[in-house]
Structure formats: C-alpha cells, structure tokens
C-alpha cells in the first residue's frame, strides 16, 4: 500500500512540474532584462511599471472588464425571465428552451463567429454594429453555463412550493420569483457567471474574427505585443494568468462553500 502512494506521488509531481514549467519560465522571463544564456540576467519590474502607465494597455484592460460584464448580465436576465415563464406557465416548452441553451456547447467559437459575421456584416441597422455582434456572440457562447447554473439553483430550491407560498401571502408570481426565488439561487448564478467570465476573458477567436483589432481586449493586446517585444508581452502574460487563476480560485472557493453549506443543512 505504501509503495502505491509513493508511485502516485511521483506521477503527481511529474505531471505537476510539466504543467507548471511554462508558467514559471514565462513568469521568470518577465522579471528580467534578458535571458539568453543559461540563467536570466538583470532583475527588473520595469515591464510591469510601463504596462500600468501605458494608456493602450489600460484601455485594453477596461475593454476586457466591460466585455465580460455586459454579456453576462444580459444572459442572466434573459435566462431568468425565460425560465420563469417556462417553469411557471409553460412547462411543456422547457425542453425546447433547454435544447436552445445547450446547442452552443457543441458549436465551436470559430464557426459561431464567422456565421454571425457573414450574416450581419454589411447589413443595415443595429445588427451591423460589430459590438452588437460581439456581445450577441458572447451571450450565446456562455449560455449553456449560465443556463446550467440557474437551472441547478432552481432545482435545489422547491420553486413551485415557494411561489405558491408567496402568492398565498399576497405577492404576484413575478414579484415572488425575483424576491423569493432569485435571492436563493444567487450563489449558483455567481459560480456560473465566474465560469463565464473565465471563458470571455480567455477568448481570442470571437473577438478577433468579429471586431478585429478595432476593439482590443487583453488577449488581442498580448497577441500584438508578442510580435514586437517578448519581454513586455511576458508581463502581459503574467497579468492575464494571475487574473485567470484568481477567477478559478474564486469559483473553487464558492463551490466548496456551497458544498459545505449543503452538507450542514443536510445534517439537520
């Protein structure tokens, strides 16, 4: 038995090292003047300093934050309203809403982006706006995750009974839904929103195909920067990866908290 765990630990260490090397190497690379020999030379944080004073980078960061928030808020509202109507009034339609929400799982970002682009580019009206296309595309890409998060949340609370109870106390169904049901599924919505943030934050293909370089997020910025200065790009890389890890850590933390909360209330 002892031998087995040792073997397992060795495998874990090997895979762990393999996975961490690229991160570690690039992080070290970003903190030195140059690395052309065996060891890097000249420790410095100036790449970071220049980045944070550069307008272009800050605007890329700002763009990224905006383009993460807007589609997520829209999608959450759309799915909440749709699920409210469907579960309360049209239970037979629920199946179709589910199918529509799950389809994006199977279509690749490349195909979604080019199909939206080819359909609406050059058309008249609001749909010709690249930002509208981009937000629409992101809404579709994150739809399965948001739907799953909200659906799981609704399954965990006894929605029909709580709505009945609210109604008997004089609340309308819509009021009951937003004041009684939604507050109880907030944690599920938070987790799936964070997953969605991770997806949009890491996206390159949709934004590149739909808006090109006219609307830069940090991924586009990294792409352009690595063509000119790899040291500066490595600092961008570190910032991107730190943010990504922060999001993942937050998701894990919230999930654990929820799992513990469930276990606690199950004990009673």
């Amino acid at each position: 038995m002892k031998k087995k765990t040792t073997a397992a630990h060795i495998v874990i260490i090997l895979i762990g090292i393999y996975l961490l090397i690229p991160l570690f190497a690039t992080a070290v690379y970003s903190m030195f003047e140059k690395w052309t020999g065996l060891l890097p030379e000249g420790f410095s944080v100036k790449h970071y300093l220049t980045l944070f004073t550069e307008r272009e980078f800050m605007s890329a960061l700002f763009n990224t934050v905006i383009i993460c928030i807007v589609p997520i808020v829209i999608t959450i509202l759309l799915v909440l309203l749709a699920l409210f109507a469907v579960t309360v009034y049209f239970p037979r339609l629920e199946k179709y809403v589910q199918i529509l929400c799950m389809i994006p799982y199977t279509i690749q970002g490349v195909i979604l982006s080019v199909s939206i682009l080819s359909l609406y580019a050059g058309s008249k009206g609001i749909l010709d706006n690249r930002m509208v296309m981009l937000v629409g595309a992101y809404c579709i890409i994150i739809l399965p995750y948001i739907y799953q998060g909200i659906r799981n949340g609704l399954n965990a609370v006894n929605m029909p009974m709580l709505l009945d109870a609210a109604e008997m106390l004089g609340a309308s169904k819509l009021y009951g839904f937003f004041r009684v049901i939604v507050p109880n599924i907030i944690s599920g919505i938070t987790v799936s929103s964070l997953l969605a943030v991770g997806i949009i934050f890491g996206d390159y293909v949709l934004i590149r195909n739909i808006t090109g370089t006219s609307f830069k997020n940090v991924q586009i910025y990294l792409f352009l920067e690595m063509k000119s200065s790899s040291t500066k790009a490595s600092a961008v890389f570190v910032i991107i990866m730190m943010t990504t890890f922060l999001i993942t850590a937050l998701v894990l933390f919230l999930k654990n908290k929820e799992a513990k909360g469930r276990a606690k209330s199950a004990e009673r």
Binding site: A25, T26, G202, Y204, M226, F237, F245
Partner: peptide
C-alpha cells in the same frame, strides 16, 4: 484555463 494565445506565447518563450 491556460490555453490559447498565452499558452502559445509561453511555448514560444521556452
């Protein structure tokens, strides 16, 4: 979540 442009970049550095 480590994929795409950052991943390619890290491999280019290495």
């Amino acid at each position: 979540n480590f994929a795409g442009v950052p991943l390619a970049f890290a491999y280019m550095i290495m």
